[in-house]
Design a protein around this nucleic acid. Structure first.
Lengths: 207, 207
DNA sequence: CCAAAAGTGTTGGCGTTACACCCATGG
DNA sequence: CCATGGGTGTAACGCCAACACTTTTGG
């Protein structure tokens, strides 16, 4: 079989300081910032390679990730299967930085990043993917804060809570978070049976 | 760059006889029916290869298609970038057949097909992708029939028309279709500015 | 007792569904 | 004039967005 090799690039996001950030590595020789990536070995699938890349950075429990899109313009070098990942807030791994999503990238990585950001926004509208930005257990206020960053607008607290709880995507756990001079907050985890919920009914034809 | 080659496989759908059908080729030597595909040449992108495959079957105006998912389990052979396509009703090209989507396929093509069918159903809920099943110009009754096959339930004619027209995805064109002993039907095309409409607002957070 | 975040219900408006009859044509 | 599919309006209901105050705690 002739043709080009296959690589995997990962756009890993986190939310910190009220802003969406993406995990980048700096390669000054190659024109600045780029997404972490790797060639796909002969004995692994692209999904295996993505998990390997994430485990190398975040340890054996790789964060949530899914395949995004495959890029392969001729002249690009390898064909790249892009993944995007959602990572709870934390320090950037060795040699990498969490950067605002507006930074210009090397190669065509800006295009990959733009696609990943768009997918993230789309899924925010109709799934519980954003819960993956939080370390468990988390409070409802933390969930709301994540959604407010992603949607770029404030949300009504009562409506938000009613709707989020109605999804049955959360399971309350024992204990409360005390964090200052105010009432402690209930704690939640992802509901084990619905770790990643898409709204079933569509918009066009709910009748 | 080491690793495996890259191929493209296409799941092309049409609606005929009130049922969803997929374009398959029979290779008795390799265990029955399979999706049309091809290796990706060194000088082309996967998208180029998909278009090439479709043009070889349907002529220089390739039907609507989009990238679906990239499959690459080790031991699979080449890594395959799968596309799905939506084709207006018509005769199957030389050497190929329109088959019901339940037929068992060779290799892992059944998995690819299942993914494509799912994507098609998802997009039916919140986009005007199903309009691509129709040759232009078409009538509103034809549009409704397509949606009824995809959604597998009858739809109310008045509600359907109101909603479809409200999307402003259609443009009425001159002329009427006369097809028997009844009132002739108005004709429509895809609105040129919105050839492929996704509903903007989501379900979870429209407030 | 003060500050700060957690927590909680109701109402009005709008969008969606349910529903039945007349129209235009060909034979 | 009859059969066939094309074409049209309204009313009841349910869901969603808007909105403000009380509770619990730490200092």
């Amino acid at each position: 079989m002739k043709g080009r090799g296959v690589a995997v690039d990962v756009a890993a996001f986190t939310i910190d300081g009220g802003a969406l950030r993406v995990l980048l590595e700096e390669r000054p020789a190659q024109g600045g910032w780029q997404l972490p990536g790797s060639a796909v070995a002969a004995a692994e699938s692209p999904g295996d390679a993505a998990r390997r890349i994430l485990e190398a950075r975040f340890g054996p429990r790789a964060p949530y990730h899914e395949q995004l899109y495959t890029f392969g313009e001729p002249g690009r070098g390898p064909i790249s299967v892009a993944y995007f990942a959602v990572v709870p807030r934390g320090r950037a791994p060795q040699g990498l930085s969490w950067k605002p999503v507006q930074v210009p990238l090397a190669f065509d990585h800006g295009e990959i990043l733009a696609e990943a950001v768009e997918r993230l926004h789309t899924k925010t509208e109709y799934s519980t993917l954003p819960l993956r930005f939080l370390e468990e257990p988390f409070t409802l206020s933390e969930v709301q804060a994540v959604y407010e960053v992603l949607l770029e607008r404030p949300l009504d607290k009562r409506n938000f809570r009613r709707k989020m709880l109605a999804l049955e995507a959360l399971r309350q756990v024992q204990g409360r978070r005390r964090s200052g001079a105010h009432r402690p907050a209930r704690l939640f985890r992802l509901s084990p049976d619905r770790p990643y919920l898409l709204k079933e009914r569509g918009i066009l034809f709910p009748f």
